[in-house]
Structure formats: C-alpha cells, structure tokens
C-alpha cells in the first residue's frame, strides 16, 4: 500500500466513494464534506470508513476521524497512515 502515489490514492478513494454512495459521478476534492453528497448519512459514513479501511489496509481510531473537517483532511490522514506503514 505504501507504494501508492497521491494520484493512485485519490483514484482508489474516489472509487470507494462512488461505490459507497452509488454515484459514479462523484469527484472527490479537498473541500468536500458530507453536505456535498446526498447519500452521505450516518450509516453510509460507517460504510465509507469500513470500505476505506479494507481498500487501503489501514485502521482508524475514533480520535483520528472525529474532528475531520473535510475530505482533504481525511486524505491527509490516510496518506499519513500509508506512509507510516512503510
């Protein structure tokens, strides 16, 4: 997983968003929030986190995702975990 470059991470995360929210038109961007995605409710939020964990082989803690402001911060968290995994 650690060999993924930024573009590959973004592409894989986009696929996960599209699958989770059943919307092939989704293009993720740094400022995106749940308010920008119709199907982003509490249950799909759980589904999203589970899918990202599976898709990238990482695990998140409540304290890590509890205060994320947008997709950009989520991406930064994800990239940090992938880098730490070496």
């Amino acid at each position: 997983m650690s060999t993924l470059d930024d573009a590959a991470i973004r592409a894989r995360l986009t696929d996960i968003f599209r699958d989770t929210f059943d919307d092939d038109s989704i293009e993720i961007h740094e400022a995106m929030t749940a308010a920008d995605v119709d199907e982003w409710d509490s249950l799909n939020h759980i589904n999203l986190i589970l899918a990202v964990e599976r898709g990238f082989g990482v695990r998140f803690k409540t304290s890590e995702i509890g205060n994320l402001a947008n997709v950009g911060e989520f991406l930064a968290l994800l990239k940090g975990k992938l880098a730490a995994a070496g």
């Binding site: 939020h45 759980i46 986190i49 589970l50 964990e53 695990r59 998140f60 409540t62 995702i65």
Partner: peptide, 11 residues
C-alpha cells in the same frame, strides 16, 4: 473479519 473501532462497527 474487520473491527472498525473508529465507527463502532464489526464485519
């Protein structure tokens, strides 16, 4: 197969 502590979910 999966414990997602962050969102309190288990698969």
């Amino acid at each position: 197969t999966q414990v997602a502590e962050a969102v309190g979910a288990v698969v």
